[in-house]
């Protein structure tokens, strides 16, 4: 390493005439490190950049038989974009995408913060650890399992939710929750909160743990109640972390979810409320094989997402914390 650093700083490398030669020499000298990076660069090029190149098929009428000869497909300009904007589903897909991701944000974002605040009040360490262990667990389950649990609990045939509601007299007949549009958003959000609340609270718990205990001692002496301490010490102290996570959520506005919706809304009756951009792309692309149309919609979403992410990152930087 010292050798190479000396090379880099040597006056020779700054002279343009011999530059290319010494550049090659430097490159040869560090072939071993370049070799470590090379496979990663190639893999990312193939599996991340080649699909990016593939988005040009969104401006063509792509068909599978031309295969790898992408350029043999006819150009059609913005035809597929226009078709999407004019599609009867367009409005509801956009609405569902935004509503679902906003609901996930409004309910799913504060939930782990509240959990962290509650956990922080627990003085009984064993109790705290047990609660943490239990609430982190659902995060590690696949959406297939979570959707399976949801289906079982909400079923009309021995579904616990229906049993409970019948027992307390709220309903007379079991309700088939997963086939009724009005319940879908609540079910989707609840399943998401159930899965992620514990795991997402970890970072906020850590933020709370780093607060100076002297602040609480002083508040105790002044006779401030626990509730007041949370409001006046804990919340303001973790605000920077909260704000960063809020800003990052802006960048995810069009990511309403995919697996969760696909699995929980397997009943097609729910489409008017469950269809979001990603599930639509999946259905028309891989289900109906309208590749170019689906690529165009995916690209539409990706471009807006990049815009949102850039805004989010800019805001994060302004607030003193950048993403990278």
């Amino acid at each position: 390493m010292p050798q190479a650093t000396a090379e880099q700083q040597s006056p020779i490398s700054r002279q343009p005439k011999v530059h290319s030669k010494s550049f090659l020499r430097r490159l040869m000298k560090q072939w071993d490190v370049q070799l470590m990076v090379l496979p990663g660069v190639i893999l990312v090029f193939i599996f991340a950049y080649m699909p990016m190149y593939g988005v040009i098929t969104g401006f063509m009428d792509y068909n599978l038989f031309t295969g790898s000869r992408i350029w043999d497909n006819p150009w059609v300009g913005f035809k597929h974009f226009e078709a999407f904007f004019a599609a009867p589903e367009f409005e509801r897909i956009l609405r569902n995408t935004i509503v679902i991701s906003l609901l996930k944000f409004v309910i799913g974002f504060p939930a782990p913060i509240i959990l962290a605040l509650l956990l922080n009040e627990v003085r009984h360490m064993l109790f705290k650890r047990v609660i943490q262990t239990i609430t982190y667990l659902p995060y590690f389950l696949s959406w297939v399992i979570v959707a399976g649990f949801a289906t079982a609990l909400l079923s009309t045939e021995n579904g616990s939710i229906n049993i409970l509601l019948e027992r307390i007299g709220a309903i007379d007949e079991p309700i088939n929750f997963l086939s009724l549009k009005e319940y879908f958003w609540s079910i989707l959000i609840s399943a998401n909160v159930w899965k992620d609340i514990g795991f997402n609270s970890i970072v906020f718990l850590a933020a709370i743990a780093s607060i100076d205990p002297a602040l609480y001692e002083a508040a105790d002496i002044d006779g401030a109640s626990k509730a007041k301490q949370i409001y006046l010490i804990t919340l303001p102290s973790i605000m920077p972390v909260v704000i960063i996570f809020m800003i990052l959520a802006i960048g995810n506005l069009l990511n309403a979810g995919f697996e969760d919706i696909l699995l929980l809304a397997s009943n097609p009756v729910l489409r008017p409320v469950s269809d979001v951009i990603d599930t639509y792309v999946y259905r028309v692309g891989l289900g109906s094989h309208r590749y170019s149309y689906a690529v165009a919609i995916g690209l539409f979403k990706a471009i807006i997402s990049v815009g949102l992410l850039t805004i989010a990152n800019y805001m994060a930087r302004r607030s003193g914390n950048s993403l990278w």
């Binding site: 990312v44 193939i46 599996f47 991340a48 950049y49 080649m50 699909p51 990016m52 190149y53 593939g54 988005v55 098929t57 792509y62 990603d278 792309v281 999946y282 692309g285 891989l286 590749y291 689906a294 690529v295 995916g298 690209l299 979403k301 990706a302 997402s305 990049v306 992410l309 850039t310």
Partner: peptide
Amino acid sequence: FTLYFGGGLIPTYLL
């Protein structure tokens, strides 16, 4: 850059 932008589901599938 790949964290910001990706080709998406269908181009990856075709690849």
